[in-house]
Design a protein around this nucleic acid. Structure first.
Lengths: 143, 143
DNA sequence: ATGGCTGCAAACGTTTTGCACTTTT
DNA sequence: AAAAGTGCAAAACGTTTGCAGCCAT
């Protein structure tokens, strides 16, 4: 569980301010821990905390948070990006249902196995993406 | 190396036709084996084989090929999708340079380690994505 | 009071679509 | 001849941007 105060401190240390909109967006992300959420859903939920938040503001803040390493951005389906707050003490991956979009956590991380292997390959590794796709029990039954 | 004739047979078996455009797109993908290529680059290259090919046709065909499991589609950067022809006899993943986009093949596949583990978790696994990101030797030097 | 942040609306790049026509089977 | 596939242009979609005004520091 990432600490909200720590994140806000990180922001301030970097010269960023703590606006109502930014805090609301952060709250949405924190409440959605361990699950991907789209920019649009973040926008909708953020408006419940701070109704006059604008969609552009959401995108601008997601970029800031991504650059600071507070959130993780990915493209699971190829269309819209998905976001998730980063929990240093529980690095994980996802299994995603191709039918309903339901996700579950996968604790296994292949990066640990391969990290050293590539350290001397010219490439300097920084990130990795590991996602499993399939059909969840429910969607599997429906077909 | 996927066999062009086999792919065309698969297409025909499913009721798809073999048009000049479709064959040209397939040729581009086959010539680009083991590398991701964007829809736009496929379009540009396809026009060299069959000049009157339209961009919509490229997209429509990429969707057909993706649905048939002939190609693999991914979003490395979150903007445009990237495509690659699937080689059953050389399944692999990629390491991608975040600066210049250069890619290299990674033989290691984490899916093999995890496959059984999830077969009885309700989820029926079908696909997986494993991508490594970092900076290649050249881009690393430049910074 | 300064500089970061926001709302708005317009623009952007990628991808998809409707429709009339063409091509493969 | 029938059905799939295409070209074209327009629309859709997610996302980004310029700018004037606002707000946290």
């Amino acid at each position: 569980m990432p600490n909200k105060k720590d994140i806000i401190k990180t922001l301030k240390d970097k010269g960023y301010r703590c606006t109502n909109q930014r805090e609301a967006i952060l709250d949405v992300l924190l409440n959605n821990e361990n699950h991907f959420i789209s920019a649009e859903d973040i926008y909708i939920k953020t408006k419940k905390y701070y109704p006059k938040t604008n969609f552009s503001t959401v995108y601008r803040n997601l970029e800031v948070l991504d650059n600071l390493g507070v959130i993780h951005r990915t493209n699971t389906d190829g269309k819209k990006a998905m976001y998730e707050i980063i929990c240093e003490d529980s690095h994980h991956h996802h299994i995603i249902c191709k039918s309903c979009g339901k996700t579950e956590i996968v604790d296994f991380c292949p990066f640990l196995n391969i990290k050293e292997k590539f350290s001397n390959d010219g490439f300097k590794l920084t990130d990795h993406k590991f996602e499993l796709y399939g059909y969840c029990e429910k969607c599997n039954e429906d077909n």
